[in-house]
Amino acid sequence: MTRKDHPLLEVSELVTAYGKIEALKGVNLSVEQGSITCLLGPNGAGKTTLMMTTAGILKPRGGSIRFAGTEIAGRAPHAIVAQGVALVPENRLVFPAMTVIDNLQAGAYQRRDRVETGADLERMFARFPRLKERSAQLAGTLSGGEQQMLAVARALMSRPKLLLMDEPSLGLAPLVVEEIFRIIADLHMDGATIFLVEQNAHMALKVAQHFYLMEQGKVTFSGTPGAMAEDEVIRRAYLGSAKA
């Protein structure tokens, strides 16, 4: 579908504002088909705003987001899901009062192929055995790590061409974080394209092929892991540079 010379996701000069305050001040970046691309940066840099704008929850004030050659900036969230983009949001946002299985069914809401959806459900249970054990449980009763897995599985149920993940390791115990990153690496092995926002720069740089550094609403550095000394990247990801 995508031509080889075009990235799967191409964000250019994107501006998103809350009232008068611009959270994104002209962001440019791209995500190549089949890659794990990571977005690092300190709190308040605008990473979540970028994710929410790409998913259509926030409307941009200017600029463009091209996905697989189609302009999606400013379109309704459900239309963007229909294009093949799914976001695993910050703080997971599972449906707490719904069962695990209903959460997954909701993720497949736009799909009409019942048989294939059922098969995908089994695949999710094979990939996340703990979700299978808890399939009849309310999602709100799951642990943080289980909710994160549910949020990932729910997003995958729409069969996205691009998976956006916003801080999947947030608030999770170190062992669970490792499991989440193992899942990310697995998904990548299976051919998924992943655009990942992370505070945990150390873990993210291990799995990513490409990374961007975002500070104060702008991309200030882009490269491949190793292009900048890792400790410098991490320092700036957490603290920001003195002058953006």
Binding site: G56, H78, L93, F95, P96, M98, A106, Y109, S158
Partner: peptide
């Protein structure tokens, strides 16, 4: 029903429902 699933999803979390691809409006 599919409609019922959408309604419950919207009741539970409107933002998550949008992210799941439900036309919330």
């Amino acid at each position: 029903s599919r409609f019922g699933l959408a309604v419950r999803a919207v009741i539970d979390s409107p933002v998550a429902a949008q992210l799941a691809g439900i036309d919330v409006p």
